[in-house]
Design a protein around this nucleic acid. Structure first.
Lengths: 340, 340
DNA sequence: TTGTATGCGTTATCAA
DNA sequence: TTGATAACGCATACAA
């Protein structure tokens, strides 16, 4: 911005009043203390000058930034935009603005980004990058930083969190495959350093056992990505060529399976059935359309935002966690196993 | 954040120096004026207290926010996340932070969001929501607000912009279809209120004429969305049932075509070929994989950021526009027309 | 109803 | 090399 922005003082001078009066006239909450005529004059002057209150000055004076930080790994992962929008929808209605940062799953970057948010005096944090062992978050929590986790939890720290009901989702996936007649079912888990990865892997083992199936066909992906999903799938096929179905840790990992099928000339669901997790956009248009577990991402974000507002309102409130229901969406990537 | 954050004063006291000294010790640019020993003491104290400079106070004093605003319509449109990351990659390297806002294509919301950005003293704006007739942007530009447009332009205002070479992309699409033998080629254009929509539609007409084809098979979509693409496709099929190929204004509109094909039992590319625009993620896994024009979104963002940095550096620099090359990606949604 | 005075936390100018 | 002081723009307690 090039032109020297007009200040409250400019407005006050233009309206022929003192800055204090101008301030009161411009703030809806104090406008009543001012004569209607004066208020009108001030507001007109502000309008004419294109006055915008300097939020740095306001925040310095009131020690309220009206800002919340949202920490995500990577905006280009289709999982996150809906979460962001959900967060924004609630916080903006509550008079807050949201500052989004990406960490790229890099600890140092995360530290720097959160530091930057703190220096901006954010009044709270919504964090979607939590790992089970996360000293940084633990330390912030101990220091009294208000925060809510999305989709993840941290060990040994009672931090409020909003997550999907992963265990139930995985159970539904395994049940669906078992009903179709699958016996050799594998799980390509996400990183076991994340609560999400660990919860889903454990749920897989439990569900497999409940159906009297082997629960040991698990390969861990290094990251929640298509490439790592493909790598894990190759390893899995080498180890257990007789498998007929895969429960992927998330949709991207499932897409990695698709890549391997294309490489090896395997047909899905003919040779192998696959189930994803998250129901990210456009999965219904894939070849084949991906069966997956739908997670209400927008709601996840919205609920986390609501929870954060609660925490800001009453700081001593005990940490609560919210589990949102998920649902299996059956599409074309699952079918009965080929009879061999 | 609950605990009263330590201030520079706390650090200074802990280190036994004056705040001015502490300030100089903490700022790399002024640290040289300070004895190494004192500097070390101050930095250690800052570390111990977990001191974070209050950016509101700094920005108030220096009248530099170190922040740039990024205005996009909707983060959940897969087009935008790569642009955001491109913008961030350059601006963060340049010492700036990026504040992202969504407008939902709502004029009032856009006005409010930009106002909010201005009140935060952003030093520049990158805007991806421009319409051809855009009084708000024109007014801001006249007021000397530094900004760069992405993917769009505004009529009657010389505002710097970075866009893909849409005309060449559309020409390549039409050429590809003509070579395959298509004659009845239609265009589902984006909104003609956007420069992108208008440029692509005009390019379509020109390209059609160059190949001796009818250029009048054009239907305008109300928005760049799957639903509006489907609606336009239905209208198009009603009007010209003999068409054999469609150049969609963007990938989402192309997906709308897929929906109509499913509704009506048409096969793609058997009955109708389709080409999208943008090459958003995962199109290669669609049924059929979508032929499209790849636009370098990350680079678009990065170049816009570079341009903004230039503009901030030299405010009187004449507006330049940058056209980035695009490329046709041929996949499975295009084939020769069925011989009837 | 309006004006005066003060301070939020930081940096920049000046003096020591 | 360091300290004292002022000022950025605003909101508010207090005085008038």
């Amino acid at each position: 911005m090039t032109d020297p922005a007009p200040t409250l003082r400019d407005v006050a001078e233009a309206a022929g009043v003192h800055t204090a009066t101008a301030s009161r006239a411009l703030n809806p909450k104090t406008r009543q203390q001012i004569s209607a005529e004066t208020a009108r004059r001030v507001m007109r002057a502000a309008q004419a000058l294109g006055y915008q209150p300097n939020s740095a000055a306001r925040s310095l004076k009131t020690s309220r930034s009206g800002t919340v930080g949202l920490v995500i790994p990577d905006l280009t992962n289709p999982l996150f935009p809906p979460i962001v929008r959900g967060v924004e929808s609630v916080l903006e209605a509550g008079g807050y603005n949201v500052w989004i940062v990406n960490t790229d799953n890099d600890e140092e970057r995360e530290r720097a980004q959160i530091e930057s948010l703190r220096s901006r005096q954010v009044e709270g944090l919504i964090v979607a990058t939590a790992r089970l062992d996360h000293p940084l978050l633990r330390r912030l929590h101990e220091r009294g930083v208000t925060m809510v986790l999305i989709n993840r939890q941290v060990e040994h720290a009672r931090i409020p969190a909003v997550t999907g009901d992963d265990a139930t989702g995985v159970a539904a996936a395994v049940h669906h495959l078992a009903e179709l007649g699958h016996v050799r079912i594998a799980h390509l888990s996400g990183p076991l350093t994340t609560s999400t990865g660990r919860v889903r892997a454990r749920a897989f083992r439990h569900a497999a056992r409940d159906h009297g199936l082997p629960g040991d066909l698990v390969v861990e992906c290094a990251h929640w990505s298509e490439a790592d999903g493909a790598a894990a799938m190759r390893e899995l096929l080498g180890r257990s060529p007789d498998l007929t179905a895969v429960v992927a840790g998330n949709d991207l990992i499932a897409l990695g399976c698709y890549d391997v099928f294309a490489e090896r000339g395997l047909s899905c669901p003919g040779d192998v059935s696959v189930i994803g997790f998250n129901d990210m956009p456009f999965l219904d248009k894939l070849r084949p359309p991906l069966t997956t577990v739908a997670v209400p991402h927008h709601e996840l974000g919205a609920e986390a935002a609501r929870m954060l507002l609660d925490c800001i309102g009453q700081p001593d409130r005990p940490a609560r966690s919210l589990l949102l229901p998920v649902s299996l969406v059956v599409r074309g990537s699952t079918a009965p196993p080929r009879v061999s």
